[in-house]
């Protein structure tokens, strides 16, 4: 007997020795059932309140947040880099939204494209969306926004559309399901809440463990 069969038969013998497995299969939870049963913390519904809550929670998680008009995104990135004494070189993927926002600002920002191997100081990515409940960003893997940009550079700047900020994780998960199909996922979905940190030495919280030291979020509002 393979180990697979050994484990599965032990499990079956313990929980459903005489079970009709086809019948039992009908009881399995689907996304629809999980959504109907789930407890979703109540939040204010107006767009403005949702965005304000996202900002408040992201800041509570030690990110910095700025609201920006589309044509000011490049300037806001440059300003942030200047304020933190960082060079104006940034690394991004192939995200079309970012390309549009940064087009024409080549004199302000030195932009290179593709994944990083750890020698870039600043990564700039575009988020799929954000969750107001906890100030969490949803980032998809892929060539538009390579996963390495989320983790290797010391400074991570994330651009997000104000309209993509939702109240709950569930709303964004549904969006993901619409985009990839039911039961399908991007290779990696990073749910990110603030910059990396550790409290492993005497429970003293220090920002910047193995991931970014700084997380700056630019919320694009038309």
């Amino acid at each position: 007997m393979s180990q697979r069969e050994e484990i599965l038969s032990k499990v079956r013998a313990a929980i459903a020795p005489n079970g009709n497995h086809d019948e039992r299969r009908k009881n399995l939870r689907t996304a629809a059932i999980a959504k109907a049963d789930g407890i979703i913390p109540k939040l204010p519904e107006s767009k403005k309140a949702i965005q304000a809550r996202f900002e408040e929670r992201a800041v509570k998680a030690d990110a910095t947040v700025v609201f920006s008009k589309p044509r000011e995104v490049a300037n806001n990135i440059a300003k942030y880099l200047r304020e933190h004494n960082l060079p104006s070189a940034i690394r991004t993927g192939d995200d079309k939204r970012l390309k549009t926002l940064l087009r024409g600002y080549e004199s302000l920002l030195e932009i290179s494209h593709g994944r990083t191997y750890g020698d870039d100081m600043v990564g700039v990515s575009h988020a799929l969306g954000g969750v107001a409940e906890t100030g969490t960003l949803f980032m998809e893997s892929g060539k538009d926004n390579p996963t390495t940009l989320n983790f290797l550079p010391e400074t991570h700047i994330v651009v997000i559309n104000a309209d993509d900020i939702e109240t709950s994780y569930e709303n964004l998960l549904e969006k993901l399901r619409d985009k990839y199909g039911a039961g399908e996922m991007p290779r990696v979905l990073n749910m990110i809440t603030g910059p990396s940190r550790s409290a492993d030495i005497e429970q003293t919280l220090i920002l910047g463990a193995h991931g970014p030291l700084r997380l700056h979020i630019i919320i694009v509002r038309k």
Binding site: T134, G135, M191
Partner: peptide, 11 residues
Amino acid sequence: QDMSVYTTLST
């Protein structure tokens, strides 16, 4: 914490 910094879903 309300949420850990990284919740990563890998497929």
